[in-house]
């Protein structure tokens, strides 16, 4: 639990840094930054290995947590008629299993909303944009281009076709001439946008889930060190403060992002 928990804490930092691209840059620049980040995350071989370690860690953390909770429940078959645990322990510490289950529910919906669309169903459209140029007669013509990996602009017309999700081919010659980006940025922006009817619910659910995550980390961060035997007079205070700071700052920054997108 401790090892996977601490690994997942580092995962949170990485994920957060990526998400911050959504609000740090605006307009086409922000869209490009985020989609490039998404491309890197889904294509870099080291990240691929890391993502599998993350999936396994989440599963192990959840399954091990469930098994331990079952054992712990069995250890006290008859509950106390009168119990006063708030006198000896913090509330988050006593509700780690409940908090963890809620975080797991959030992860499931979160993956269905974004990860599944990006990786499995490939519903995320290609990153393209429209350029308006006057033609010979002076009429404004709108031409749509794909934004590609090798900094080419490839027009979205019959001369070019998309294969394997994002590969751009010259239709007649069947030659790959570039690779486009998936426009995850637009999917995220629309998901949390005011124009979307379900966005308010999505934002509230997201923010609430970050509160749950915060409480989970409030106990979990320092607890992991204790489980690994890292309890030392010199470092305990630092681990405690860093853990509580982490539990506040990381979920807070995550939660701010959909709120900003919604209010835009």
């Amino acid at each position: 639990m401790a090892l996977t928990g601490l690994f997942l804490c580092t995962f949170l930092v990485g994920h957060l840094l990526g998400n911050l691209q959504l609000i740090l840059k605006t307009g086409e620049e922000g869209r490009r930054a985020f989609n490039e980040y998404a491309y890197f995350m889904s294509h870099n071989p080291a990240i691929k290995i890391l993502s599998w370690v993350t999936y396994i860690s989440i599963l192990f953390h959840a399954i091990d947590g469930i098994l331990l909770t079952i054992q712990n429940k069995k250890a006290r078959p008859i509950p106390y008629a009168r119990n006063n645990p708030s006198k000896n322990s913090s509330t988050p510490a006593r509700y780690m299993a409940v908090l963890g289950t809620l975080v797991l529910v959030f992860i499931a919906t979160h993956m269905a909303n974004f990860w599944y669309k990006m990786k499995i169903s490939e519903e995320v459209p290609m990153h393209s944009f429209i350029v308006s140029v006057p033609d010979q007669s002076g009429q404004i013509q709108n031409q749509e281009f794909y934004y590609t990996h090798n900094l080419q602009l490839i027009p979205k017309d019959d001369n070019f076709s998309v294969k394997n999700g994002t590969d751009l081919y010259m239709s007649k010659m069947n030659i790959k001439i570039g690779e486009g980006y998936r426009d995850l940025h637009t999917v995220v922006m629309q998901f949390f946008s005011k124009d979307n009817d379900s966005a308010l619910f999505a934002v509230l659910f997201y923010v609430l889930s970050m509160f749950v995550l915060s409480f989970h980390l409030w106990h979990g961060f320092a607890s992991a060190f204790q489980s690994l035997g890292l309890n030392h007079k010199k470092y305990n205070a630092a681990i405690g403060y860093i853990g509580k700071g982490f539990a506040i700052v990381v979920p807070l920054l995550f939660a701010i992002i959909p709120i900003i997108i919604y209010l835009k």
Partner: peptide
């Protein structure tokens, strides 16, 4: 016996 989740109740 159950497993330790570091609630700290025992120490108190």
């Amino acid at each position: 016996f159950g497993n330790c989740t570091n609630t700290g109740a025992c120490e108190v």
